[in-house]
């Protein structure tokens, strides 16, 4: 199986409260670049789908990682290669030249060139929090899709996916070639099974990390660079942010000493009971 994983680097999401906001830009200076957590999960899912969980030294498929970004984004690709991806593609552009629609258009061309069986991506990039590219891309390439995937099971000619939706889990079957966007629970011990992995096998919770020798070896894995303009032709940005504001802050309130005091405050001061 050949899997294409789209990954984006984002400013450290655990310190998102330290960004400087407005009036016409968001300044993330001082925050480290990290792989978007959902994309890290998508990569983990791709690796699980191309191995027997019990014998994961042997690769049973090909995983290609792709990002759109400036040369510095190569670091994100190299670390994905160290984690286990086989090769990488960077679509060269500045971050400011992108919006979701252009990313989807460019990725559609990459899919056309690479012809993967499965495209895996995050459900959302946690900088812009758009939750757009996967669905738009699936439409452009006319692939069936399963967004918000919590489980993926490989079948003879496709995947069975459990989607986290309002009110429960929706199970859908996709025939290859197909696209899946992943949600948080995709890295649970029993969420992803390739046809080679025994149904009783349990992964460690979370994602795998690159062993030291792999980090060295990753420097030699192929990383191709394409130009954005070559992929999207004349298409240009069609979103324009005109203003950014910081949210109204919430202040710490009071500590109460007992349950009785809490109830009294909620009744008499807050008047919500």
């Amino acid at each position: 199986m050949k899997i294409l994983v789209a990954v984006k680097r984002v400013a450290d999401p655990d310190n998102a409260n330290r960004i400087k906001v407005g009036p016409t830009q968001i300044d993330t200076t001082g925050l480290e670049w990290k792989i978007n957590p959902f994309d890290e999960y998508a990569l983990e899912a791709a690796l699980r789908l191309t191995e027997d969980g019990a014998k994961n030294k042997d690769r049973l498929g090909e995983v290609i990682v792709v990002t759109l970004g400036p040369p510095e984004a190569d670091a994100t690709l190299r670390s994905a290669l160290a984690t286990g991806a086989d090769r990488a593609i960077r679509v060269n552009t500045s971050d400011a030249a992108l919006d979701g629609r252009l990313v989807a258009k460019a990725l559609a061309k990459v899919v056309e060139q690479q012809a993967p069986d499965l495209v895996l991506m995050g459900k959302q990039a946690v900088d812009g929090d758009s939750n757009f590219v996967a669905q738009a891309l699936a439409e452009l390439i006319d692939y069936p899709m399963a967004t918000f995937a919590a489980t993926i099971k490989q079948e003879a000619s496709g995947v069975l996916v459990g989607r986290e939706v309002d009110g429960g889990t929706m199970n859908v079957r996709l025939r290859f070639p197909a696209l899946v966007s992943v949600d948080l629970r995709i890295v649970a011990p029993d969420s992803v099974y390739s046809s080679a992995t025994a149904p009783t096998f349990k992964y460690n919770e979370g994602v795998r990390f690159a062993p030291l020798p792999a980090i060295m070896k990753a420097k030699k894995k192929p990383l191709d660079v394409l130009e954005l303009s070559a992929l999207v032709g004349g298409a240009t940005l069609a979103t324009q942010y005109v203003k950014f504001t910081a949210p109204a802050g919430r202040k710490a309130g009071v500590k109460v000493a007992s349950v009785a005091e809490l109830v009294a405050k909620l009744k008499n001061d807050a008047r919500v009971l």
Binding site: I19, G22, I26, D129, T239, Y241, K243
Partner: peptide
């Protein structure tokens, strides 16, 4: 719309 886990609100226009 909220961005960065609600740490910023951006106002945008679309031109398609």
């Amino acid at each position: 719309r909220p961005m960065y886990a609600g740490n910023a609100f951006g106002t945008l226009t679309l031109s398609t």
